[in-house]
Design a protein around this nucleic acid. Structure first.
Lengths: 136, 136
DNA sequence: CTTATAAACTGGAATGATTCTGAAATGAGA
DNA sequence: TCTCATTTCAGAATCATTCCAGTTTATAAG
């Protein structure tokens, strides 16, 4: 699984003409370090605060939104729970439990047909890279 | 990817009648060494300072401007806006379990019509990584 | 080797735009 | 209704860059 790299994110910030601030660096650090899961804004906020004292929750939200709008990270939105943010833009599917909130990056063998997914996993598609408009 | 050569730059300085100063040499060194990234003025400044103690940020700005005005370096080294990270958004679906909490990365076969996924799999599409929010 | 002088350098201040903050508002779920 | 995640907003702070005035320096001419 590919991991996000700090330099990559910073480089993309520059390319997009976004400014590099201590807050953004702290958030990037948090994203890089909390790699074992799909962190929500609150967790990122807490982690970022360890890096830079002056980070507000509003900024975390705004920054994550900014980042995902610019393709630096992926924002995973769900009906009934806190948003999660995914720094891993490689080929994978995010599965999220609506009940307990756990998120897993899972790689399915190429032989598995999409139509078999519901039967085998009972999961719900919440994100696709091919441009499908979202649906409730 | 084009490479910058130190001797080239120095030679061009002479041709253009520009003076060869320690600061400019330091900046050239910095440019040569960090050419794999998209260095901003600040990064070049920091790098140049390692070479020559006496370099100011003002000088870095002025020098970079001077250099690009004289064609020594291409402007794209500093302010190109296009994304150099191609292929970040790969073909995959994010799946979320509504019941048990598992997450699955599913690689979409070329034959599968994205908009058929919800119907065929029983999954729900709520987001796309192309920057178009598809969230319901 | 000097000297003259235009070019280059410096630190700080100015600039315009972006970003941050904290509190209050919103909105959906329990 | 209560709670919690998220958004909004206006003013404050910060960022990247340029500008400026005074000082230093590279280099060509003597």
């Amino acid at each position: 699984m590919r991991r996000i790299k700090k330099e990559d994110l910073i480089g993309q910030l520059k390319e997009k003409g976004l400014k590099i601030t201590p807050q953004r660096l702290a958030i990037i650090d948090a994203l890089v370090e909390i790699r074992e899961m799909h962190p929500g804004a609150t967790l990122i906020f807490n982690e970022a605060r360890k890096k830079a004292k002056r980070v507000s929750l509003s900024t975390v939200y705004a920054t994550l939104k900014e980042f995902s709008e610019n393709g630096l990270i992926k924002q995973l939105e769900f009906d009934r729970m806190e948003n999660r943010y995914d720094g891993n833009l490689s080929e994978h599917i995010n599965l999220i439990c609506k009940r307990c909130g756990k998120i897993i990056d899972y790689h399915i063998p190429a032989t598995l047909e999409p139509k078999d997914i519901p039967r085998k996993s009972g999961f719900l598609v919440t994100d696709t890279p091919t441009g499908i408009a979202g649906t409730a």
